[in-house]
Nucleic acid binder design. Structure first.
Length: 243
DNA sequence: AACGTACCCTGCCGGC
DNA sequence: TGCCGGCAGGGTACGT
């Protein structure tokens, strides 16, 4: 389920449970995942988020980088199926991922830095900089999903943010006016912060204004919400609020 | 360089 | 009940 808010929520839990723990062993049950190197004995110094990635800093100088993709998650109770188990001095974390699209790898600091440079600014960072959106002619909804332009926004919060900003998802990204970019910035920050505050329960009723709500009423004006496809992904919007 | 499409995997849901 | 297509909140590898 992971976009920035869900990753952040999970990172907070992982940090609470694993910071300072020593890895006893790793149990890799899925051959698609290869953890070259020896994690045993290393101490977990920090767990943090980088875009939608989870980064676990290890005492040996390497970093465990996890991307949840569509269905990845960590559990602390042993699930029926899991891809990797991290056995530590503070308990076991199970990497669960039914679709097996997620990734877990061990990288050097140099490689991690290289990856970080590929990512656009973090919307919850100091300034939430959207300037890179002016560099593409693609529709703004599609541009928001490009992690090089802004990192962390995914398909749900792209639609939600544009609804808050009252911007049509088909608008050319490079033709947004400064005032529209300002509204979009506030829309992104608000929808992400709200999702983090809600926690996982946001996926239950009343969580979203437009996402997944085609045929229902816009909470702001009552107009019927519409769905269409952009770049193979569903986009939801209110045709009246978002001209 | 920048854009679109196919593809990676599995599970779930609605319709027949 | 069983099968089948469509869909899913991710990103990449290609082609143009």
């Amino acid at each position: 389920m992971p976009e920035l808010p869900e990753v952040q929520i999970l990172v907070n839990v992982l940090a609470l449970r694993l910071t300072g723990a020593r890895i006893r062993s790793t149990e890799v049950r899925d051959p698609k995942i290869r953890l070259a190197g020896h994690l045993a004995g290393q101490r977990i110094q920090e767990v943090r988020r980088l875009g939608k990635n989870i980064v676990v800093d290890l005492s040996g100088g390497l970093h465990l980088v996890i991307h949840l993709r569509m269905t990845g998650w960590f559990e602390f109770e042993k699930p029926p199926r899991y891809r990797v188990a991290l056995h530590t001095s503070r308990g076991t974390a199970y990497f669960e991922d039914p679709r097996r699209l997620g990734t877990m790898e061990l990288v050097t600091t140099a490689l991690l830095e290289h990856r970080r440079q590929q990512l656009g600014p973090d919307p919850l960072g100091d300034d939430c900089d959207l300037s890179r959106l002016r560099g593409t002619s693609r529709p703004v909804k599609v541009a928001l999903l490009d992690q090089r332009l802004i990192s962390g926004v995914g398909n749900i919060y792209a639609s939600e943010s544009l609804w808050r900003a009252r911007i049509n998802p088909r608008r050319r990204s490079d033709r947004l006016r400064p005032d529209e970019l300002g509204r979009l910035r506030r829309g992104i920050v608000a929808s992400l912060r709200r999702a983090i505050a809600y926690g996982p329960r946001i996926f239950e009723v009343q969580g979203f204004a437009v996402y997944g709500r085609q045929g229902k009423e816009c909470p702001r004006c009552g107009t019927t919400i519409r769905r269409f496809v952009q770049s193979q992904r569903s986009t939801y919007f209110c045709p009246r609020c978002q001209r």
